[in-house]
């Protein structure tokens, strides 16, 4: 009898330990997100609290981190760089991505749909460094030939590459959103004599509005955070671009390009971590919004 109790209590102890372990793993994601913020903040905190000039950072385009006479950390040109490339990418990716989502979910015969979805999934898997390489070689020579642009990399190149990278996300999440609209909506509008196109435009798109918006937001998140592709495909000129055929440098590319050369714990190194905090905050807000928007539909 006593032996049995002992065995039972041992079993119970084991179960209790495993459940605690599972619980710890379960909440680990929260720790990791906080950890990321904490450690990135920690590396940049010293300078952020000591000598960081917020106004200069956001309003000056003078980024001279290694200047001997006067070091300046104005990130406006980098911020504009990120936004110009993202904007151009979304200008291309949103219509094409949503159009493809509508086609795949509403017009496509089922067999073709499966294969298209597989292809889109494979496109999403292409590593960003390969995208960057494509931009550097194939896309660059195409753009130089087609637009007789000045030699070198430019916003257009980075924008197209980023668009191609964010399209798979927009398509797959957009398609999910359209699929989540109940079939009764489709049947009702078709029964009223709508064409498929009218049904899509007047019924499905308004009904799936939130999901489609979330798809676009996640595409934006991906484009803002993308590093290697823009590092390799947008050129390295730190200034506000006057047109799509001029080179820029983005926030992400700046970190990747300069962190290797900045001495650990120098001001320059800490400013790069402050840019990291900025990027983290931007994507955090974008993802949070996307999530809230998606929850909005589910509750309905």
């Amino acid at each position: 009898m006593r032996l049995r109790e002992l065995v039972n209590s041992k079993e119970l102890l084991k179960e209790w330990m495993i459940e605690k372990l599972i619980w710890i793993c379960g909440i680990s994601a929260i720790f990791f997100v906080f950890g990321i913020f904490f450690f990135v903040f920690r590396e940049g905190a010293d300078y952020l609290l000591r000598g960081f000039k917020v106004t200069e950072f956001f309003t000056s385009i003078e980024w001279y981190p290694t200047s001997r006479t006067q070091v300046r950390y104005g990130a406006l040109a980098l911020i504009t760089g990120t936004f110009s490339v993202t904007l151009l990418a979304m200008f291309i990716a949103v219509p094409f991505g949503l159009g493809a989502a509508v086609f795949i979910s509403e017009f496509c015969p089922p067999r073709l749909r499966e294969s298209l979805k597989v292809i889109i999934e494979l496109l999403a898997a292409i590593p960003s460094v390969v995208w960057g390489f494509i931009g550097l070689t194939i896309m660059n020579s195409l753009i130089l030939n087609l637009f007789s642009a000045p030699i070198g990399l430019n916003v257009l190149n980075g924008g197209i590459i980023l668009a191609l990278m964010s399209v798979p996300i927009i398509v797959s999440i957009g398609e999910d959103a359209l699929k989540a609209v109940p079939d009764s909506y489709r049947e009702a509008s078709l029964a009223l004599g709508c064409t498929r196109w009218q049904m899509i435009f007047r019924v499905l798109v308004p009904a799936a509005r939130n999901g489609l918006l979330a798809a676009v937001l996640l595409g934006v998140g991906r484009a803002v955070g993308e590093t290697m592709a823009v590092l390799m495909a947008t050129g390295h000129s730190i200034r506000i671009p006057g047109g799509v055929l001029e080179p820029v440098r983005t926030l992400t590319a700046t970190i990747a390009a300069e962190l290797g050369e900045a001495p650990v714990h120098s001001d320059h190194y800490q400013v790069l971590f402050i840019i990291g905090i900025l990027l983290f905050s931007i994507t955090f807000v974008v993802n949070l919004t996307a999530d809230l928007v998606v929850r909005g539909i589910r509750r309905k």
Partner: peptide, 14 residues
């Protein structure tokens, strides 16, 4: 969701 959305370069800084 946020962990998936953090830019890869921020993961590098982390």
């Amino acid at each position: 969701v946020n962990l998936a959305g953090v830019p890869s370069i921020v993961h590098a800084l982390f």
